[in-house]
Amino acid sequence: ADIGPVRHVDVAWVRARGVPDAGGWFTRRDLSGGGALVDLGWHLLDTVLPLLGPASIAHAVGSVSDDFVNDDAARAAWRGTAGTGGRGDVEDTARAFLLTADGASAALHACWASHEARDRTTVSVHGTAGSVTLRCTFGFSPNRDATPELTRTRDGETVRLPLPAEPIGAEYDRQLDALPGLLADPASRGVAAADARRTIDAIERVYRCARPTPPVPALAGARDR
């Protein structure tokens, strides 16, 4: 609250090596619908969209690439599962830029594998009176930063803010603890579906931009008809 209205949010979930189930359903578009954008990007959008407020997403653009998806060295070793040996046809990296109807923006970067040394997640919120940045690692990957770090920058000064120590996975326990109350609250009815619809809409619009439909050649003589 002390950084003022939100103008922009940067979110990134970048794995060093973390392609799941190479050749399995995770990397088959006909079964999964997409790659890193659907998998990791969904969680990033769940984080960023509430920060942007209720305004609709006016514009969504992005790009995808697949430099690592079929590289055995980039597979997620911690999952303990083997792929089918087939080739994946989804993206391992996605970048997107969103702009709301009231002018707030967000940049998103999600990738299953990269040239980085560690798996990291970054959330930076930029307001009219300062910015805050959380550096951590979402999920259960052992190739992570040891401890999360939260900093605030304002008037040229960056300070580290205290965070409670907690075990990996505690955030999922908190979600489960909150679920019964949400299910019992009549005001929560339909909220999850509406949030999912907003997230899916953003993902589909980024895919439409990143995978444009090839132009259909005009038939010979069509102009003369």
Score class of each variant (00 low, 15 high):
residue 21 D to A: 08
residue 22 A to L: 13
residue 22 A to F: 03
residue 22 A to P: 15
residue 23 G to H: 10
residue 23 G to V: 12
residue 23 G to P: 06
residue 24 G to R: 01
residue 25 W to D: 14
residue 25 W to G: 04
residue 26 F to S: 05
residue 26 F to T: 12
residue 27 T to F: 10
residue 28 R to V: 03
residue 29 R to E: 15
residue 30 D to L: 10
residue 30 D to K: 13
residue 30 D to I: 07
residue 31 L to E: 13
residue 31 L to F: 03
residue 32 S to V: 00
residue 32 S to D: 04
residue 33 G to H: 12
residue 34 G to F: 01
residue 34 G to D: 09
residue 34 G to Y: 07
residue 35 G to E: 08
residue 35 G to L: 08
residue 35 G to H: 03
residue 36 A to K: 01
residue 36 A to R: 04
residue 37 L to T: 04
residue 37 L to E: 04
residue 37 L to P: 06
residue 38 V to F: 06
residue 38 V to R: 15
residue 39 D to K: 09
residue 40 L to R: 07
residue 41 G to Y: 01
residue 42 W to M: 11
residue 43 H to P: 15
residue 44 L to R: 00
residue 44 L to N: 01
residue 44 L to I: 04
residue 44 L to H: 00
residue 45 L to G: 08
residue 46 D to F: 11
residue 46 D to T: 14
residue 47 T to I: 10
residue 47 T to W: 12
residue 48 V to L: 08
residue 48 V to Q: 00
residue 48 V to S: 02
residue 48 V to P: 05
residue 49 L to G: 09
residue 49 L to I: 13
residue 50 P to Y: 14
residue 50 P to L: 13
residue 51 L to S: 05
residue 51 L to K: 01
residue 51 L to F: 02
residue 55 A to N: 02
residue 55 A to F: 07
residue 56 S to C: 07
residue 56 S to Y: 01
residue 57 I to R: 00
residue 57 I to L: 00
residue 58 A to M: 13
residue 58 A to T: 08
residue 58 A to K: 15
residue 60 A to I: 01
residue 60 A to N: 00
residue 60 A to V: 01
residue 61 V to W: 01
residue 61 V to C: 08
residue 62 G to S: 10
residue 62 G to R: 08
residue 63 S to V: 11
residue 63 S to P: 03
residue 64 V to A: 11
residue 64 V to F: 06
residue 64 V to Q: 09
residue 65 S to L: 04
residue 66 D to G: 11
residue 67 D to P: 03
residue 68 F to G: 08
residue 68 F to M: 10
residue 69 V to K: 01
residue 69 V to N: 02
residue 70 N to K: 04
residue 71 D to T: 04
residue 71 D to I: 00
residue 71 D to P: 00
residue 72 D to H: 13
residue 73 A to V: 08
residue 73 A to P: 05
residue 73 A to H: 13
residue 74 A to V: 02
residue 74 A to T: 05
residue 75 R to W: 12
residue 75 R to Y: 10
residue 76 A to D: 14
residue 78 W to N: 12
residue 78 W to Y: 15
residue 79 R to Y: 10
residue 80 G to F: 03
residue 80 G to A: 04
residue 80 G to N: 04
residue 80 G to S: 07
residue 80 G to V: 03
residue 81 T to S: 04
residue 82 A to W: 02
residue 83 G to C: 10
residue 83 G to Q: 12
residue 84 T to D: 10
residue 84 T to M: 07
residue 84 T to F: 13
residue 84 T to K: 06
residue 85 G to L: 13
residue 85 G to E: 13
residue 86 G to E: 15
residue 86 G to N: 10
residue 87 R to G: 09
residue 88 G to F: 05
residue 88 G to S: 07
residue 89 D to M: 04
residue 89 D to Y: 06
residue 89 D to R: 06
residue 89 D to S: 02
residue 89 D to A: 03
residue 89 D to T: 05
residue 90 V to I: 10
residue 90 V to C: 07
residue 90 V to F: 07
residue 90 V to L: 09
residue 90 V to S: 04
residue 91 E to K: 02
residue 91 E to L: 03
residue 91 E to Y: 03
residue 92 D to M: 13
residue 93 T to V: 12
residue 93 T to D: 08
residue 94 A to M: 07
residue 94 A to Y: 00
residue 94 A to Q: 02
